[in-house]
């Protein structure tokens, strides 16, 4: 098993080692009149075993940061450090190794699948990536069944099906099964529940947190919903127009916000049960 703390509760104390950090990370799209600074010199330190939330409005640059962290897009300026050293993704092999350690779940489950491929292909890819290419067919099936069972899906019912035969919630659960098979050290979840109906949303979140408890990994959770961030995370980064305006422990940031932007975000949280009372629930409850 990886050298990651198996217990989420430890994260809150900021005792974990650094697993992913950045200095002056910047992304500029386009040039001339169309120049957009999507991410503007951000510094961050993500620690092992934590659940970190990145909260910001639409267009604040969250997805762009995630793409840079995933090495899916180039970094215009600044450095990213991974597991203690400077991230090296200069060759294909090194990139491949990097992606073994860091994986993602995206916002829209419907566009996360290649509609021409059967579902099995997605899971088989994961087994292959973890060096299971030579495994017997039975062993592979067993691994896939186990992964499906973890997200409350029946592999027998899914095998040989195409993505469009699944519901959005099922698709997103299968994405979690994918992570279960890959066992990365860091998971970047870019608004994984925003396209899902409210019922499935809680299930998906719980499964993510269960998975973290199961295989032990750092979760970087991107959302525009600060209430959700408070519900799941140890540390919160608040992003406004490409910059981190505030960060710290979830309680500190949300209960005692210092930035004006954070206060506005908190006010925007839809309040169904007035008054919104942050002290009533405990994020730890979901982990047990």
């Amino acid at each position: 098993m990886p050298d990651i703390m198996m217990n989420g509760a430890a994260g809150r104390d900021h005792v974990g080692e650094l697993c992913l950090s950045g200095k002056g990370v910047t992304k500029v799209y386009g040039m001339g009149a169309r120049r957009t600074v999507a991410v503007d010199h951000v510094d961050f330190e993500f620690r092992k075993g934590e659940v970190i939330s990145i909260v910001g409005e639409s267009g604040s640059g969250k997805t762009t940061l995630v793409k840079m962290l995933l090495a899916l897009t180039s970094v215009t300026e600044g450095d990213i450090y991974f597991m203690g050293g400077k991230r090296d993704i200069t060759t294909r092999q090194k990139k491949h190794d990097y992606w073994r350690g860091i994986q993602a779940i995206f916002q829209d489950p419907f566009s996360s699948y290649n509609i021409f491929h059967k579902i099995d292909a997605v899971l088989l890819d994961c087994i292959n990536m973890r060096g299971g290419k030579g495994f017997s067919k039975e062993k592979k099936t067993e691994m896939m069944s186990e992964a499906c069972k973890f997200v409350n899906l029946e592999f027998k019912e899914l095998t040989n099906k195409y993505p469009f035969e699944l519901s959005g919630g099922q698709m997103q659960r299968l994405m979690i099964a994918r992570i279960f098979l890959l066992q990365p050290r860091i998971l970047l979840a870019d608004e994984p529940t925003s396209m899902i109906d409210a019922c499935s949303r809680a299930t998906i979140l719980d499964m993510l947190l269960n998975l973290r408890a199961e295989i032990g990994m750092t979760i970087i959770f991107v959302t525009h919903d600060i209430g959700l961030a408070y519900y799941v995370s140890d540390t919160v980064y608040i992003m406004e127009r490409g910059r981190f305006v505030e960060f710290g422990g979830a309680d500190d940031v949300i209960l005692r916000p210092s930035a004006e932007y954070t206060r506005r975000l908190i006010q925007d949280v839809p309040k169904i049960h007035e008054p919104w009372d942050f002290t009533k629930r405990s994020p730890r409850a979901v982990l047990t």
């Binding site: 793409k67 995933l70 899916l72 294909r92 990139k95 491949h96 992606w99 994986q103 993602a104 995206f106 916002q107 829209d108 566009s111 996360s112 699948y113 290649n114 509609i115 021409f116 491929h117 997605v122 890819d125 994961c126 990536m129």
Partner: peptide
């Protein structure tokens, strides 16, 4: 599109991505 991003994250090579994830 996210499926292309996921394909890259799964370590697929450029020709394979072009042929299986874009071409169809």
């Amino acid at each position: 599109r996210d499926h292309v991003n996921l394909s890259r994250l799964s370590g697929h090579t450029l020709p394979r991505i072009l042929v299986t994830d874009i071409l169809p």
